[in-house]
Every structure is written in C-alpha cells, then in structure tokens.
Simulated assay, not measured.
Amino acid sequence: MTSFLSKRAIASAISLIVLIVLVFFLSRLTGDPASLYLPVDASAESRERFREINGLNDPLILQFFRYVGDLVQFDFGMSIRRSEPALDAVLRAFVWTLQLAVITMSLVTIAAIAVGSLAAFRVGGLFDRLATFLSLIGASAPDFWIAIVAIVVFSVNLGWVPTSGTGTVWHWILPIMVLFIRPFGLIVQIVRGAMIAALSSAYVKTARAKGVRNRPIIFVHALRNAMLPVITVIGDQAAALLNGAVVVESVFGFPGVGKLMIDSILQRDFTVVLAAIFVTAVAIFVMNIVIDILYAVLDPRIRY
C-alpha cells in the first residue's frame, strides 16, 4: 500500500511540474502587462520601467528559472493588480471555493447514493423511472443556464434569496443549488447502474434467502461493493469544483479561485495565475490520494 501511494505521489509531482511549465509559458502569450496597466500614450521609458519593476524585461527563460527558484521557497511573487503576495490572494479565494465544494459535494453524495440505491432496488418502478428522468435532465442541463434561470425565478420574481454576494447564509443557497444539480444527476446514474449489478449478485441472493431485511441488503451488503465506480465519479466532480466553478462564481459574484483565475488572466496578472494553478493542482492531487486510500479501505484486494 505504501509503495502504491508513493508511486502515485511521484506521478502527481511530475504532473505538477509539467503543468507549471506549460502555464508559465502559455500565460505569457496573453500579451504585455505594460500595455494593459499603463496609459495608451505612455512613453517607452515608462513601459521599460514598469517591466523592470515587475521583472518582465528579462529573457523568458531567465524569468522562468527565477520563478522556479522562488517557487522552491514558496514565494510566488507579488500580484501586479492587487499589490499583495499572489499566494495570499489565491489562498483567500481558495477558502471560499473549498467551502462551496465541500458543502455541495457532501449534499450531493448523500442524496445521490440514497436516490440511486432506492431506484436500483425496484428497477422499472415509478420511483426508478422518476429518478432516472430527473437525473438525466440534471446531468444534461448547463450550469450557466440554470444559474440565470434561478436568479430570475428565485431572486428577481419571488425575492426569496439575494442575486449575488456572500454576506449571509442566504447568499449561499443559489450557488449551492446550481452546483448541486449536475453532479447529482451524474452520480445517481452511476450509483443506480452499480447497485443493479450488485443486487443481482450471488451474495445478495444468499442474504435474501437467509431472511435479511431489505435495508441491510441495500445499504450494507450491496452498497459497499458498488462504491468503487461511485467514488471515482465523486472524485471527478469534486475536482471540477475545486478547479473553480468558474461559471457559477462569475454569475453569482462569488469570490472563489475560479473567478480569481479568470480575472487574473484577463488582467495579465501572471503571478496570481500561476499561484492559483499550483494551489488548485496540489488540492486535486491530495484528493486523488485520498480516493486511492478509500479504494483500499473498500476493497482490500487493491492493497496488494
């Protein structure tokens, strides 16, 4: 098990290094920050001075090696736009995204496992058909459309919740609701398919022959053996949220890392872009290690 996790950690570290290299050079293709932050009629001397202050006048390869040297010391540089350490700005935004992702995925996981398991128990029944229909709609609906409709209906017309912001608990309802729908639909489908296979297995038939009640059969005997593909999909959906629910954060004015990353790209704030990519990638790699550990807990064969 330790050897397996070590190999995964090394693979993740290599992926992180490649990602940093790609993002560093590709972000420079967005243009010269001096053209964005200085007036149109700024002199050549002013532009050169701006580049010198922000370390942008050196050759690109020299900038890269200087950045790597600072990165080893966890120094991501200063944000051009915000005049503060880039890592501070990213961590502040990442906390908001992490809270949003944890709350949403906790609700999604509980609801999807319950609905998918019950739907699989009576295949073709009314509950199964209703759950399948609604989950397919949820998995197919685009986030930006759901977000706009939710604002029009619940904020503008009904006035139940605010349109945007993070001031109170009520501000969290619409973002969580919109982010809930798509992963819920996907996970319900996966749970249902995995549970149908598990409920038709020999050990479930033996449990039924011994007189075991339906609830232990569904949520003890069958569910544990059906969870491996479910955990994979849950991990993918959680990674998508950690990577920044860009559309939802932008529509609802949520100060998460996804919105910060998009704003920083448009503002050519390279240090913030790189810091956001690094923090998000590390979080996703850690989550993948946790998923591997859960695999081993659910299926002891994986340990070997």
Score class of each variant (00 low, 15 high):
4 F>Y: 13
6 S>K: 13
9 A>P: 02
11 A>F: 02
12 S>N: 14
16 L>W: 01
21 V>S: 11
33 P>G: 15
33 P>S: 14
34 A>T: 11
34 A>N: 06
34 A>D: 08
36 L>D: 04
42 A>C: 13
42 A>S: 15
46 S>C: 07
56 L>K: 03
56 L>G: 06
59 P>D: 00
62 L>D: 02
64 F>D: 12
64 F>L: 12
67 Y>F: 06
73 Q>N: 10
77 G>K: 07
80 I>P: 03
93 A>I: 01
95 V>C: 05
95 V>F: 02
96 W>C: 07
102 V>H: 06
103 I>K: 02
104 T>E: 02
104 T>C: 07
106 S>M: 09
109 T>S: 15
109 T>H: 03
110 I>D: 04
112 A>C: 06
112 A>D: 08
114 A>N: 10
116 G>S: 11
119 A>L: 08
120 A>I: 10
122 R>N: 13
122 R>E: 12
128 D>S: 09
128 D>C: 03
130 L>D: 07
131 A>N: 12
131 A>G: 13
133 F>E: 01
134 L>M: 12
138 G>W: 00
141 A>I: 13
142 P>V: 06
150 A>E: 02
153 V>P: 04
154 F>H: 11
156 V>L: 15
157 N>A: 11
160 W>Q: 09
164 S>L: 12
164 S>K: 09
171 H>D: 12
180 F>Y: 03
183 P>M: 02
184 F>V: 11
190 I>Y: 00
190 I>F: 01
191 V>I: 05
191 V>F: 04
195 M>D: 08
197 A>Q: 14
198 A>P: 06
199 L>G: 15
201 S>N: 13
207 A>V: 08
212 V>P: 06
212 V>Q: 11
213 R>E: 13
213 R>A: 14
216 P>N: 12
218 I>D: 11
220 V>A: 12
220 V>E: 11
222 A>K: 01
224 R>W: 00
226 A>E: 00
227 M>A: 13
228 L>Y: 00
229 P>N: 15
230 V>E: 01
234 I>G: 05
239 A>N: 15
250 S>C: 06
252 F>N: 10
253 G>N: 06
255 P>K: 13
256 G>D: 03
257 V>Y: 01
267 Q>M: 09
267 Q>C: 02
271 T>F: 03
277 I>K: 03
278 F>R: 09
283 A>T: 05
284 I>R: 13
286 V>W: 02
290 V>Y: 04
290 V>I: 12
291 I>D: 01
296 A>R: 05
297 V>L: 15
300 P>L: 12
300 P>F: 10
302 I>W: 03
303 R>M: 05
